[in-house]
């Protein structure tokens, strides 16, 4: 089974790497991450102008810029993941290659797993590249140092080493909601044979989940959509030295992982079940 899955994974990886959309998306994400300091500066200036104050954000530092850059770049990554996952099976159906693949010695559930894993690998690589680009640009623009209290500059709130660990943990945790997004997107892709309609279904599902999370905070805690931006928001809060955020970081990050992990498993399993049970005509 592992051998078959590995073969299918490599096939799916090859197919994805030949997609122009993926490369265009990756370049845009990295550019957005690199432009983080400029965009953060512009946002701070706009906020100051709106509030009528003269100065910028006194709590802004390299780490807050890094977190903001990754959050902005993540928007594009999630969008890319939704479009590519929601069209993955539907596109095969519309091209007719679904028939070609299913008539080969392939277990449909394994094929779905390979699709999800291949897309996750590539979007995860883009996310890692975005974090790296955001780190480099934040270092160049602001420098990444210990986080100190602006009122008490001698007091180190979080050391450089702590912040580095927070960024690494947030990056790792962000990969799980990404997997959940791809799993749910792939499930939507098995529902209709038209890639556009499947993408619409996936976007609709995300909007509904987000709205439900907004209306019911209790539900939001168990919706992966609400967890998408949590890890780097927590990093931003830590860098901004909001009190109590370290406890939140330690409590919220594991929840991001297990809630999203469950959604990822459910989405992928449902997609596999749906494809296994359907007739391929």
């Amino acid at each position: 089974m592992i051998g078959r899955l590995w073969t299918l994974y490599r096939v799916e990886l090859s197919k994805l790497l030949a997609r122009r959309l993926l490369w265009v998306g990756a370049v845009l994400v990295i550019l957005l991450a690199l432009a983080g300091p400029s965009l953060s500066g512009a946002a701070a200036a706009a906020r100051a102008a709106a509030e009528g104050s003269a100065g910028g954000d006194e709590f802004q530092n390299g780490w807050t810029v890094l977190a903001g850059s990754v959050t902005r770049a993540s928007f594009l990554i999630w969008l890319l993941a939704v479009v590519l996952s929601a069209s993955s099976v539907a596109e095969e159906a519309s091209w007719g290659t679904l028939r070609v693949i299913c008539a080969r010695p392939v277990r449909r559930a394994e094929w779905i797993a390979a699709k999800v894993l291949a897309l996750w690998s590539l979007t995860a690589a883009i996310l890692l590249a975005a974090v790296f680009a955001a780190t480099a640009s934040a270092e160049l623009a602001f420098g990444l140092y210990d986080v100190v209290d602006p009122l008490f500059p001698d007091r180190v709130t979080h050391s450089f080493g702590d912040m580095r660990w927070f960024v690494l943990a947030a990056t790792g945790a962000s990969l799980v909601p990404l997997l959940a997004l791809i799993g749910v997107g792939t499930f939507c892709s098995t529902l209709v044979d038209h890639p556009g309609h499947a993408t619409g279904a996936a976007v609709g599902a995300l909007v509904l989940l987000s709205a439900a999370g907004g209306l019911s905070p209790g539900f939001g805690e168990y919706s992966f959509v609400d967890q998408l931006f949590v890890p780097f928001r927590l990093v931003n809060d830590l860098a901004n030295q909001y009190t109590g955020k370290l406890r939140e970081f330690n409590e919220d990050l594991p929840r991001v992982v297990w809630v999203s992990g469950l959604w990822a498993i459910a989405g992928t399993q449902l997609a596999a079940l749906r494809l296994t049970l359907r007739d391929v005509v």
């Binding site: 096939v11 007719g96 028939r99």
Partner: peptide, 27 residues
């Protein structure tokens, strides 16, 4: 081996690449 209805391929890949991918799946 089969050819079912209209032949279907990945349009963004070459004929050779399409066959290589199918060959990998079939072994």
């Amino acid at each position: 081996g089969c050819l079912i209805e209209a032949p279907a391929f990945y349009p963004h890949l070459s004929g050779r690449k399409n066959l290589e991918l199918l060959g990998r799946i079939s072994g």
